[in-house]
Structures are given as structure tokens and as C-alpha cells.
Amino acid sequence: MDLKQSVIAITGAGQGLGQMMAVTLAHAGAELALLDVNQKALDDTKRQCLMLGVKALTYQVDVTQEAQVEQVFSDVVIDFGQLNGLVNNAGILRDGLLVKVKDGQVSKMSLEQFNAVIDVNLTGTFLCGREAAVQMIETQSQGVIINISSVARAGNIGQTNYAASKAAVATLATTWAKELARYGIRAAAIAPGVIETPMAAQMKPEAMARLEAMIPVGRMGKTAEIANTVKFIFENDYISGRILEIDGGIRM
């Protein structure tokens, strides 16, 4: 895919990985549809993209709400005339043990805590991926869908909900690659390791230290390193149905 004047939608575009992806793709000449629940954060990303001379529009949306997602992707095509790519980046953390015993008392992860992560990370990815595919097909735009997974998809202590969601979005990508190829749509996923983002900053210091000690390259990843991988997938037309692990060598 030639990124110049291609239209790429990015969820969770207001900060961290999403913002860096938007700026990186803007550098390559892509036009950006920036999606996030936080309008103020979106405005900051939009400003950075406009400074690079590309068209960038913002869309405030809760990716867990079907009607909102349907409307937003319809609006994107009305505003840009096409849709060539989607990065399903929106996600949250609500870490906790499945069960925990303290002073003889057993506590457990609540269904609300589990569902909150599944709703954003998995259901949101499903809804946005589905609607992006619909718009790509209806506008006859060959396209690419990239899901952001995580090395936690292999299972990680204290992340029952997050690990489950990230394993699922990786599987969605491989499934979509097979289903959507007939329409000229590729799909892939990226499984980042420990990356310096606001989300990672939410982790407990002891958990972060434990993870950093496991990374063979000796440091956390940079947001630019993940954003450059997104750009690589868009530009390499032979990548589909694969999960790229960008993790500094860590294996959970």
C-alpha cells in the first residue's frame, strides 16, 4: 500500500501508541481519521498531524457502543471518500488476580472488572474491524486492518482479563485475513512487549520492574518502534494473517 493520500483510521489515537502511530503515518503522507473517547487528547494529535501537511479529522467515539461505531465509520467515508486502513489500538488495563487470599479472606476479580477490559479491548476491536471492512468493501477500497495485541496474550499473572482480550484480538486478525482476502483486504496484528506508554505507567512498580528484568535487550520499547511496525505492515503487501511480536526478546 502506498500511504500517500491513503485514509487510515486509528482508535485510541489521543495518546501513547495511537498518537505516535498517527504522527508516523502522517510523515508518510497518509490522511488520518483519529478516533478516541477523549476529544481534548484527539485535538492534540490532530494538531501534530496538521503540522505535517496532511488532512486529519477527529471523531469522539466509545468503541464499545455499536451504534456509535457504525456512525463514525460511515462519517469517515463521507468525509474522506474512502477508507484504506484501520489500526485497532484502543485498549485499557484493569489488572488483578483471579482470586487473592489475604489474612484468610478470599477476594476475587469481579465480573465488572473482567467485562470492562473485554468490552473495550475485544468488543471494540470487533466492532471497529467489522465496520472498517464494510466500508472498504462498499467503496471498493483495498485495505488493511491491524489489531494491537500484546505478548501478554500468552498469559500473564494478574492479567486474566487483559491476556484473554489480547489473545482474542490476535485470533481475530488471523481469521479476518482468511475471510477478507477475497475483497483485497489484509489483516495482521502486532504483539508489543513492555512499551513506554501512559497505559504501562498504570502498572504497579514491582510488576514493571519484574517485566523490565525479563527483557533481553535491557529496556522498555519505544512507541516509535511500534508505530514503525504499523507503517511496515501497511507498506508490505505480502504481510497478512500474522502476529508480529515486537518485544525486545521477552517471552511470557
Rank of each mutant, 00 (worst) to 15 (best):
I8F: 04
G14L: 06
L17S: 07
M20G: 04
A22H: 05
A28Q: 10
A28M: 05
A30Y: 06
E31S: 06
D36L: 10
D43N: 12
D44V: 14
T45V: 10
Q48S: 10
K55M: 14
Q68K: 07
F73Y: 12
V76H: 02
V77Y: 11
F80D: 03
F80I: 07
G81V: 07
Q82S: 11
D95G: 11
L98A: 05
K100L: 14
K102Y: 11
D103I: 08
G104T: 00
V106T: 14
K108R: 13
K108P: 01
K108G: 00
K108S: 14
Q113R: 14
F114V: 00
L122Q: 11
L127K: 04
G129N: 03
A133V: 08
I137N: 01
G143P: 04
V144F: 06
R153I: 04
A154G: 03
A154D: 03
N156C: 08
Q159N: 07
Y162A: 02
S165I: 05
L172D: 13
T174G: 04
W176H: 01
A181H: 05
A189G: 04
A191N: 01
I195Q: 03
M199A: 08
M203G: 01
M203I: 12
M208W: 13
A209T: 09
E212Q: 15
V217P: 11
T223F: 07
A227C: 09
N228R: 15
N228H: 15
V230E: 13
V230M: 13
V230D: 12
V230W: 14
I233A: 05
F234W: 08
N236W: 12
N236F: 11
D237P: 09
I239K: 06
R242G: 12
I243G: 08
